[in-house]
Amino acid sequence: MTVVSENRCFDGRQLRFRHAAETLGCDMHCSIYLPPQAQAGPVPVLYWLSGLTCTDENFVHKAGAQRYAAEHGVAIVSPDTSPRGDNVPDDPEGAWDFGLGAGFYVNATEAPWSSHYRMYDYLATELPALIAAEFPVQAERCSIFGHSMGGHGAMVMALRNPGRYASVSAFAPIVAPARCPWGEKALSHYLGPDRDTWKQYDSCELISAGATQLPLLVDQGEADNFLAQQLQTSLLEQACSDSGFRADIRYQPGYDHSYFFIASFIGTHIAFHAQAIARSQA
């Protein structure tokens, strides 16, 4: 692991590092914010997953999360959204919604994607182990959240790994990728044509199949131009209602899909996770 940048921020440290990711077969960048409390000892950790076209830096620069992380004494890890490098395949048509920047947090099974696009295993195993070994965090006290494609990824990670995360939250998540154009394109390429294999990466399908309850918060902007076709929050509401899965799903009037939306409510989400982590250890 090599630290490539470090900045003081709200008396904590904002770092960006590079490491060789065995799971992905390439070098990866990742960012981590360590609050001032980390100077005295290990702190709980939140994992943030970003959306389509993003890198590890979008959240760091635009969300304004460091202020709230410092207040609550939590670290925030922000990984990249896909493998990177000259040998990593990209959409041959150069589209922005697939390939580089659009890993969809799955383990690809189809060539040529399967040799690198294994973001699920990277996030489930390799990256947390690296963070625990290199930084002053309490690895077992963690939660996860994200935006859009990253909201999908965060929810899938939490629903498929009961007991690992104290809570999960999302901004404008893709809740049913098996039933929207972005998801259908990505999953058909990464996983192949058998739609049954897609269900393991679909939050609505996981909840309908009996996923273990954990605290879930979702914020969705009512002015989000992706809401009707790509995000389809109503499908999540229906799946939760049908399954008795408790979730706080909030529609925010006037807000769109941008980081202005995220910055407006990021403090609420960090507080939500800090409280859930505290309750889980009580």
Results as ranks from 00 to 15, higher is better:
residue 58 N to M: 02
residue 227 L to I: 04
residue 254 G to H: 06
residue 173 P to D: 05
residue 5 S to D: 03
residue 54 C to P: 01
residue 121 D to W: 12
residue 133 A to Y: 02
residue 179 R to K: 13
residue 86 D to Y: 11
residue 97 D to N: 13
residue 97 D to G: 07
residue 266 I to V: 13
residue 87 N to Q: 06
residue 237 E to Q: 14
residue 145 F to L: 07
residue 242 D to Q: 15
residue 132 A to I: 14
residue 241 S to W: 06
residue 16 R to L: 05
residue 279 R to P: 00
residue 203 S to C: 12
residue 231 L to Y: 10
residue 242 D to T: 10
residue 77 V to H: 12
residue 149 M to G: 02
residue 164 R to A: 09
residue 131 I to W: 05
residue 66 Q to V: 02
residue 236 L to S: 14
residue 52 L to A: 12
residue 119 M to T: 07
residue 180 C to G: 13
residue 69 A to G: 10
residue 176 A to T: 14
residue 141 R to G: 03
residue 188 S to M: 14
residue 197 T to Q: 11
residue 5 S to Y: 00
residue 267 G to W: 02
residue 7 N to P: 00
residue 94 G to I: 10
residue 27 D to E: 12
residue 220 Q to K: 00
residue 203 S to H: 08
residue 139 A to G: 15
residue 270 I to H: 10
residue 108 A to V: 12
residue 282 A to G: 07
residue 127 L to I: 15
residue 210 G to H: 11
residue 178 A to C: 14
residue 29 H to S: 07
residue 66 Q to K: 07
residue 128 P to E: 14
residue 222 E to I: 00
residue 80 D to K: 00
residue 127 L to K: 11
residue 191 L to F: 10
residue 27 D to R: 12
residue 74 V to S: 01
residue 19 H to G: 01
residue 40 A to D: 14
residue 50 S to P: 00
residue 17 F to M: 08
residue 4 V to H: 10
residue 128 P to F: 15
residue 7 N to I: 08
residue 252 Q to T: 15
residue 231 L to W: 10
residue 230 Q to T: 09
residue 16 R to T: 11
residue 9 C to E: 06
residue 135 F to P: 01
residue 67 R to S: 09
residue 199 K to G: 02
residue 156 V to N: 08
residue 161 N to I: 05
residue 227 L to A: 11
residue 181 P to E: 03
residue 148 S to A: 08
residue 146 G to F: 12
residue 113 W to V: 06
residue 154 A to W: 03
residue 190 Y to A: 08
residue 274 A to N: 08
residue 281 Q to P: 01
residue 206 L to N: 03
residue 217 L to K: 09
residue 7 N to W: 07
residue 272 F to Y: 15
residue 1 M to H: 08
residue 65 A to N: 02
residue 162 P to H: 15
residue 158 A to T: 12
residue 254 G to R: 03
residue 250 R to I: 03
residue 5 S to V: 01
residue 5 S to P: 00
